[in-house]
């Protein structure tokens, strides 16, 4: 019988305190813009593009305008087109995000 993860329980607690938990998704950088902004296409865990905003009727789900997190800027993490990244989105505006992590690119086929 599986045990509940202690680590998971802890994160659940801290999420309970803050009013707006961040949504974390993975994405692929499709364009680099000035001012360390990027266009990122969200990708679901199954590797398919993720549609976050309903109501837009284009075939391709819209890309997210994302900036680099302060910590990544301090550490000079370079992000380029084609990189897989982790994004944090506010539940209130799913069209903008913050890049918090550049993933190792071994998952990209």
């Amino acid at each position: 019988m599986a045990q509940r993860s202690a680590r998971e329980a802890r994160t659940a607690d801290s999420n309970g305190k803050s009013k707006s938990p961040m949504i974390e998704v993975e994405g692929e950088v499709v364009d680099t813009l000035p001012n360390t902004m990027f266009l990122v296409r969200p990708i679901g865990p199954n590797g398919k593009p993720l549609r976050l905003v309903t109501g837009s009727d284009e075939d391709e789900p819209p890309a997210i305008l994302a900036h680099l997190s302060g910590r990544m800027r301090l550490r000079f993490i370079r992000v380029g087109v084609g990189d897989r990244v982790k994004l944090e989105l506010s539940p209130y505006d799913l069209t903008r995000g913050r890049i918090t992590w550049r993933l190792r690119n071994e998952r990209v086929e």
Binding site: A2, Q3, R4, S5, E8, P45, N46, G47
Partner: peptide, 15 residues
């Protein structure tokens, strides 16, 4: 699991 395109459940763990 992830190279197969599936995802690992994190809420539960072995022991």
């Amino acid at each position: 699991v992830e190279s197969a395109g599936f995802s690992v459940v994190r809420r539960f763990v072995g022991h």
